[in-house]
Write a protein that binds this DNA or RNA. Structure first.
Lengths: 152, 152
DNA sequence: TTTGTATTTATAATAATTATAATATAAGTT
DNA sequence: AACTTATATTATAATTATTATAAATACAAA
């Protein structure tokens, strides 16, 4: 964790941004909850637990900044809220998501399943792909099992 | 166009909804601007041109209804606004989008490029896919050409 | 007609996000 | 270590998109 913060600090500095305590606190929350998909409000509340003086606007600005630097990805699953998702270190692409329409759970797919598709888009549509967002909506494994059980 | 409205009317009736004049006016706008990705506000303003008495909330409710019936798809490209996109008749899936980060244009891909990927998701992750959202971010053909010209 | 339900309008409320202005602070420089 | 200055933060207000509410209306069935 410290390593990762250190590297992000350098990245910030290289773009002449500072790693303020508020930004560090926000980052720590994101790192601790890496597998979650927190909204700005979620992040705010979690940061507040350890740094109660932080303001909501600061969290928004920090997330925006991290988003520009491609440290986090801003996603929208269709509820009105933006969610923020830490990128895997060195990942060029956004990872994919599996959203269950039964229980609302969100699973991640870290593998890039779109390499072939991107080649097609590039060659057939002449579009130079830089990034993608892919979300599948459907029924997760747990809910499938649950459904089978109740019908038995 | 009339055909299509007629069929949607039947679909509404089959779910015991009515095709009110306001709903029809909204649908007509969506059909006329099928290739666009209008926000609720956009739709409202366009409907208002022909039916000035319509209210914004009605447009929202109509779009919500059409969305439930899978007649339109609600998409979010990351700006704060939801956009509404008419489905191709009979299409089971959402179509894909190419969003240009230079000029902001949005192109559509009607073909389903994800059949193979969905099979993988199904078999490897046990996730029963029902729908997907796929957006590519990058540089469109026009902007690529423009970039080449200016550097020459 | 009458009645009941669905729909709409107009407006208010809510919720997420962004802007503003005053204040505080990080980090380089002396 | 104190000084300086651009940058960042806080607290609050403003904005924007969307949803809820209540009264009015339309409309289909009895």
């Amino acid at each position: 964790m410290e390593h990762r913060i250190e590297r992000i600090k350098k990245q910030l500095h290289s773009e002449s941004y500072k790693l303020t305590p508020q930004r560090e606190a926000t980052l720590r929350v994101l790192l601790e909850r890496e597998e979650d998909h927190l909204s700005a409000e979620d992040v705010y509340l979690l940061v507040k637990e350890k740094s109660p003086e932080i303001g909501l606007a600061t969290v928004y600005r920090t997330l925006e900044l991290l988003s520009e630097l491609k440290i986090v990805d801003k996603i929208n699953f269709g509820d009105g809220v933006s969610r923020y998702d830490l990128r895997k270190e060195g990942a060029k692409h956004f990872h994919h998501h599996l959203v269950c329409i039964e229980c609302g759970s969100v699973e991640e797919i870290v593998n890039d399943l779109l390499e072939d598709v991107e080649k097609i888009v590039q060659s057939e549509w002449g579009f130079q792909v830089q990034d993608h967002r892919l979300t599948f909506h459907g029924i997760c494994k747990q809910c499938q099992l649950a459904a089978v059980k109740t019908t038995q």
